[in-house]
Write a protein that binds this DNA or RNA. Structure first.
Lengths: 316, 316
DNA sequence: GTCACCGTTGAAAGATATTTTCGTTTCGGT
DNA sequence: ACCGAAACGAAAATATCTTTCAACGGTGAC
């Protein structure tokens, strides 16, 4: 797990093939989101630094490494390490990004719906807060999505002989959603709901097939297991997870990172992770539909026609 | 004229009182203007530097003093002098300001998100457009939700003896999502996937029970039928639909309206309606959790605990 | 309970970048 | 052509950033 961290720190211009585009692009505005995503894989002092940075980009941009180290009660080394983990070559670049972020915030003044949902919030506030949160989640996800990985995943799925999608619980619904969509454009897809069935299915996969695992935590055994089997059988594997450093990525050829909103008692993580996952799934779907347009378009209208008679002529 | 320059260059940490807050505020975004204003008082090489900076803030922000000096065919000293003239304490600060400026320009550049998704859109555009669309859908939904109806629905669900949720296809997943959530807080809920089963279930309902129908079109027979049965048996009925004038509302005590984004070939209606429906479901859930907080909170943590062991100890 | 191991951390050395100093060059005026 | 003042850049001085490395602290094995 911290293996990944190590890797990032290791010789960065390795002569070997950088198969996986590990660290995303320097992150435009999705810094807060990135901090949240990566926080779990950070050490305590790094978290302090990350938090300070996310809390007050403008303020931190004004500080030198030493200053930020003192502010957070850590050392320069830790600050640099944090900057690296966040995807920048060094502190200097983080600082520049911070300045940019600060400028943006300055111009875009947030509406301050940041408070958490309380037990006694009137229903109207609940609606506003939830909507605001999900919108935020969408923006974060879009900003944090690695389009290279996404493109690779789309290519794999578009050319797959068959596709399995694994997911449990809330993620299971997302898995079903993806499956439904793939079926609609004439691809062969399954979303086994039962973990045993999933493994049984996975065993049948081979090169040319694709397996997709959807798990927010990145460490759901019931989902990792079938993915591992598929991986070992030679299928192309894709992980959609909120923890790009989680165990599931071991067996994933392509990793698509979903974003995480802060959660609370009345707002379980499942809620925002689902929103995020669905956006990723939608992107996959549209990407695939583009690639297979010739066959997807007729399939889409065919399924539309077939369903039409199931609706009463109820419109007016 | 160059008199000013001299003063600025003069001993800055003078032992005397630093009475003068030397240059103006670090200049927000009016950099180009400032360059123009001050150009006449600049020497030739300084003008070259200023010009480069005004032309391409983003590019220059990526350069070090030395880099910018080389680019403009001048020396580091000149670059620093220019930075001073422009009102910054030194090059470092100019660079920070440049980064901010670049970021603002970047965000201002509207990616023409209003257009539809085309077959040949690059994947990055697809992501941006989809995210933008779903965000729009959320805002619309939140704005259009009738909080009175929502409150009534919440009250009914919170006090229900049992709840049935009907949905088919994409809406079926939303139905399952609601069901999962209700189960998590200790309520009794079912989401029969089979239309026949749904009717069979509906027959069992009576006053004090609740039935929820989820259908975007508002005219899906397979969903209306069980709702009608439940309605006639005296259960409280709720419709979540994008067509508040559709047939389904005949049998609904409470109607919750979801919003619809324009659809297109590559972006089926199901996509945005699902987003909208999920927001409604989330609102219902949180509303119910608030009302039944005493029992919901423990139930939530209990289900969380029960699931914990299914995740490998993947985090630190 | 003790020990070994591994990850975390910061102090300090090392490398870069920035700022200042200062001598050379350029240019206008005489 | 000569003088002086301003412009300019090379290089020294300083500040900042990065890397190294040893010490610390926690965890699991025995």
């Amino acid at each position: 797990m911290t293996q990944d961290v190590k890797e990032i720190f290791a010789d960065r211009r390795g002569t070997g093939t950088p198969v996986r585009s590990v660290a995303a692009p320097p992150a435009p505005a999705a810094l807060a989101a990135k901090v949240r995503t990566l926080a779990p894989s950070m050490t305590r002092s790094m978290q302090r630094v990350a938090e300070a940075v996310a809390d007050d980009p403008a303020g931190c941009a004004a500080l030198t490494v030493t200053g930020l180290a003192e502010l957070t009660g850590t050392s320069e080394a830790t600050v640099v390490r944090t900057a690296r983990l966040l995807g920048y070559p060094g502190y200097r670049d983080l600082r520049l990004a911070l300045a940019g972020l600060a400028a943006q915030q300055e111009s875009g003044r947030a509406p301050a719906l940041t408070t958490d949902i309380a037990v006694d919030d009137p229903i109207a506030d609940v609606v506003a807060k939830l909507a605001h949160d999900e919108r935020q989640t969408l923006a974060d996800t879009a900003a944090g999505l690695d389009t290279v990985q996404l493109g690779a995943a789309v290519a794999a799925l578009a050319g797959a002989r068959r596709t399995d999608v694994y997911g449990i619980g809330a993620s299971g619904l997302v898995a079903q959603d993806l499956t439904q969509k793939l079926l609609r454009i004439g691809l062969i897809a399954h979303a086994p709901g039962d973990p045993h069935l999933a493994v049984t299915n996975a065993v049948q996969l081979r090169a040319g097939d694709v397996a997709v695992a959807i798990t927010h935590s990145g460490s759901t055994g019931d989902v990792i297991e079938p993915l591992r089997v598929a991986f070992e059988r030679g299928a192309t594997t894709i992980a959609v997870t909120g923890r790009p450093d989680g165990p599931v990525t071991q067996y994933a050829d392509h990793v698509l990172t979903t974003s995480t909103a802060r959660e609370s008692e009345l707002r379980p993580a499942a809620m925002s992770s689902r929103t995020s996952q669905l956006l990723v799934v939608d992107c996959l779907f549209v990407g695939i539909a583009q690639r297979t347009y010739a066959s997807a378009a007729p399939a889409l209208s065919a399924s539309y026609e077939a369903l039409a008679h199931r609706h009463r002529s109820g419109s007016r």
